[in-house]
Design a binder for these strands. Structure first.
Lengths: 345, 345
DNA sequence: ATGAAAGCGCTAACAA
DNA sequence: TTGTTAGCGCTTTCAT
């Protein structure tokens, strides 16, 4: 059996409180400090965080709930968040709900029973009610990437609308008019924002918005493939497409590949996320990038802040991070070609 | 404050032991069962797993320690393992050590303090000594993908040697002789096995093994890029390359892309892992695939088995899973071309 | 089947 | 600064 502070007390002849005080950074007489450290060494003592948690009602662990661990966007965020948390002594209990609302709810229960001190989540279902229970228990919740209706808590979002607006503007500037979008699921927050950015960009350029140019996928590879096929079938004059997440970008590329459609000669493409994939593609893909590391870091920091303040009340922070853009060769510059043409004449 | 079993006892007029018995599936008189369930409902009671853990000395949580969460191979394995474990009521405490031996050691301490019931890990450093402490505490350890020297415990491995041997054989069968390999770090178990498979395949085909054809990368994208460049510079007659993990495959494709080398016309390529990426590449990549889901599942099951048996002694299981191969268009079939040529004459 | 009581390892009053 | 003591919420004998 592992040694306990009782053993240390016995070995040093000191009282329990002294040992506990030492362990928690309290003041202990130099002489005793040495004796305690020696005893800890000899007996291989290690604090039992479980007992400590029972007593203090704080487990020093954070529940992390995500739709899909096996998804580069989530994985990058979580990697960063976990690191920041662990540096401060917090353990990460990670639950993957496979983008399933029921499992998401189950996971929340699970984490609640486990008495995690806070919840960091990328919501996938409409789990407002479940999450409320955390707040009622005075445990902070930080939402990542998406909001939840009627739930006021800290969140770290991305400027989705601006990102897509900017990307579509690039297509317009390059002379494209028949611009399609592979949007995400209707109920999804990021999908709504991204689609809105698309509409705004077109509206501003006075390009009519056509239903046939807006197709929804489910943020999966397969969904991207299907959506791209649909877009091409529906629009014979399709000139460029914006794909609104990574998995669907991958799916789109696969589909175009199988259909034998040349990028950017026959179709221009702007994708989302995963710089490495974009770089390895032929041609290199132009993509919108999200600051995943920063998202994870900020979310963890927000959580630590709440934990420190020991209050879930007060003004909630809503961070909105800027996206980036990595230029590739997947967008045909029609304007430039035309002007070159003119020069020739 | 959350309700405790004391509150339930008070509300129902029953004793603590009866409530506890109910919670743990013991026999309770029908009438009392109903009253207990009602009280639980009314008071929003939820078992405190922390208290339970202190008493039983079992936290129902498993430490998962991996080199890189943000790595598709790891992520796929962990996704599966976490699911299997959680179905059985076990929480996963995931630590990402960033392929750093020091951090790996720290994480082991961390998990030990947290009193996880077992450790599931993909080793990255030489942490035999640290891991031993788990075994000494009678806590099961299951190793994934790599072994640790002088450490006898359950593990789930992959037939690395066979996988590479088979892949290289395909290149040989297609008529290639100048076959390079981008191997992994010297000290890494999987890298050793894969390189060995390469050597065996060549030896069997009586193709001399040349040092210049064997380059080591560090299993990263950047490493893959560098290694591919080196391989091409060193070998003007290079005909085909086997790249021994996914990140380096990605790096290789990027590098070839930037060098303007055509696959498979100028160079044939067989990569590793990530079917989707292989499919999205131009041309489609031929790759060795690893059964990540099965690895994760088996590892978790092995862990649950040990936990059930409540013994870490006894014969350790060493599973060795079979890899797969997905055919693409990245390998030029020289033999076939030659025979077609001959037919023409 | 149920209840009383002890105790898991720790922290936190409080007293000395 | 240090020691004594109570108790966090639960399980687990041992009676009944």
């Amino acid at each position: 059996m592992a040694a306990t502070i009782k053993d240390i007390a016995k070995a040093t002849g000191l009282g329990l409180a002294t040992i506990s005080s030492y362990l928690n950074g309290g003041n202990v007489r130099e002489k005793n400090r040495i004796r305690i450290e020696q005893a800890i060494e000899e007996l291989h003592f290690e604090v039992n965080e479980v007992a400590r948690g029972l007593k203090t009602n704080r487990t020093r662990s954070i529940g992390i709930l995500i739709p899909e661990l096996n998804n580069i966007f989530c994985a990058e965020i979580i990697t960063e968040a976990e690191e920041v948390l662990r540096r401060q002594g917090y353990a990460a209990m990670i639950c993957d709900c496979r983008t399933d609302a029921h499992r998401e709810k189950e996971a929340i229960d699970f984490l609640l029973h486990r008495r995690v001190d806070g919840l960091l989540m990328i919501p996938s279902g409409e789990t407002g009610a479940s999450v409320q229970r955390f707040l009622r228990a005075k445990k902070p919740v930080v939402l990542i990437d998406r909001k939840i209706r009627n739930l006021d808590c800290d969140c770290v979002l991305v400027d989705n609308k601006g990102a897509v607006k900017d990307a579509v503007n690039r297509l317009i500037t390059a002379g494209h008019r028949e611009i399609g979008i592979i949007a995400g699921p209707e109920e999804m927050y990021t999908a709504q924002e991204r689609l809105y950015g698309y509409e705004q960009a077109l509206a501003k350029a006075r390009i009519p918005i056509r239903d046939s140019l807006m197709v929804r996928g489910d943020y999966t590879i397969r969904g991207g493939m299907k959506a791209m096929r649909e877009l091409i079938q529906k629009n014979t004059d399709l000139s460029a497409v914006l794909v609104s997440n990574y998995e669907m970008t991958l799916g789109s590329v696969i589909e175009l590949h199988e259909l034998g459609v040349q990028i950017p000669e026959e179709l221009s493409l702007i994708g989302f996320d995963n710089v490495e994939f974009a770089r390895a593609s032929t041609p290199r893909l132009s993509i919108v990038t999200q600051p995943t590391k920063e998202i994870g870091k900020k979310a963890a920091e927000l959580m630590l802040l709440r934990l420190q303040e020991d209050t879930v009340s007060g003004k909630k922070q809503k961070l909105r991070l800027k996206t980036g853009f990595v230029e590739g060769n997947s967008v045909r510059d029609i304007k430039r070609e035309e002007s070159l043409e003119r020069t020739k004449e």
